[in-house]
Simulated assay, not measured.
Amino acid sequence: MQVDILIPESGPLQYLVEHDALQLLSQTGVVHMPDLVAMSLIRKGIPGAGNMHQWLLGGRQVGTVCCDDTPVGEALRLAGMSAPNYDLMDETNRACRLWLLEQLEAAPDFFMILYENPELAAIARNHDPDLAEKMITAEYFLAMCIKIGVTARP
């Protein structure tokens, strides 16, 4: 069964990159995230960011990854052309929260939210208390995949 996965922040992807388990997401279903999440990880220069970039490009080509453009993401792209260290952290966080709420309005019946930031979990639960059962941390996601025998390497 395929599951759409909403990732409103960079924490879950960073965790999966660090554990060489990013491919698990592609095996689970379509991954949706705002462009700011991908930009954040690539700009941070975390170990494995190159692998994440390849995963993003490959996933976008085959339709397993959907990075939604946001106005703040566009502003960061434009600002980065003239000032590479430009950062709109408050606006980025606000845009990711808004993206999550928009996705919740249009989400399919069967989806899950990967999160690390408790504030994002609270926003989703305040939007709909029943969402608590659809929210998991990246650590739990990885543990669940291992337990049921889904591996990061196809």
Rank of each mutant, 00 (worst) to 15 (best):
A124R: 00
P154T: 01
I113K: 02
T28Y: 08
G45F: 04
W99N: 01
Y15E: 00
A95F: 00
L78N: 12
L120N: 01
I123S: 10
P34Q: 08
A122V: 05
S10T: 01
A83F: 10
M89F: 15
D128A: 05
N126E: 14
M1T: 10
A21F: 06
I146P: 05
P129I: 05
L16W: 03
P12K: 08
Q14I: 13
L101H: 00
G63R: 07
L16Y: 07
G48D: 03
A83L: 09
E91M: 10
L88P: 09
E18P: 15
V37F: 09
R43D: 06
V72E: 05
A21W: 05
E139S: 12
F141D: 00
I123C: 08
M81A: 15
G80P: 07
N51H: 14
L100R: 00
A143Y: 12
Y86G: 08
A143W: 12
K134N: 01
E119M: 14
L41G: 01
G73Q: 05
D20I: 10
G11S: 13
N126T: 14
Q61F: 12
N51Y: 14
I148V: 08
G63H: 08
D130G: 12
L131N: 06
R94S: 10
Y115F: 11
L22E: 07
E133M: 10
I136F: 15
Q61H: 13
A138H: 04
S40D: 09
K147W: 13
L57Q: 13
G59H: 01
V31L: 02
E105V: 04
E116G: 13
A121I: 05
A138D: 00
D20H: 15
Y15P: 06
I113P: 00
P12E: 00
P108D: 05
T137N: 05
G11E: 08
T70V: 04
M39Q: 14
G149V: 01
T28I: 03
V62H: 15
T92K: 15
N126K: 07
R125W: 02
T151Q: 14
Q27K: 13
L25D: 00
I46T: 09
R97E: 06
D69I: 13
A122C: 08
G80Q: 03
E139D: 13
P154Y: 10
L6C: 03
G149C: 01
H53P: 04
I42W: 11
A143P: 03
L114M: 03
D130T: 14
H127N: 02
N93R: 15
R97Q: 10
L25C: 02
E133N: 12
A132G: 10
M33E: 04
P71V: 02
V3Y: 09
D35W: 08
M112P: 03
C66N: 14
P84A: 03
L57G: 14
Q23L: 13
T64M: 06
C145M: 12
V37R: 09
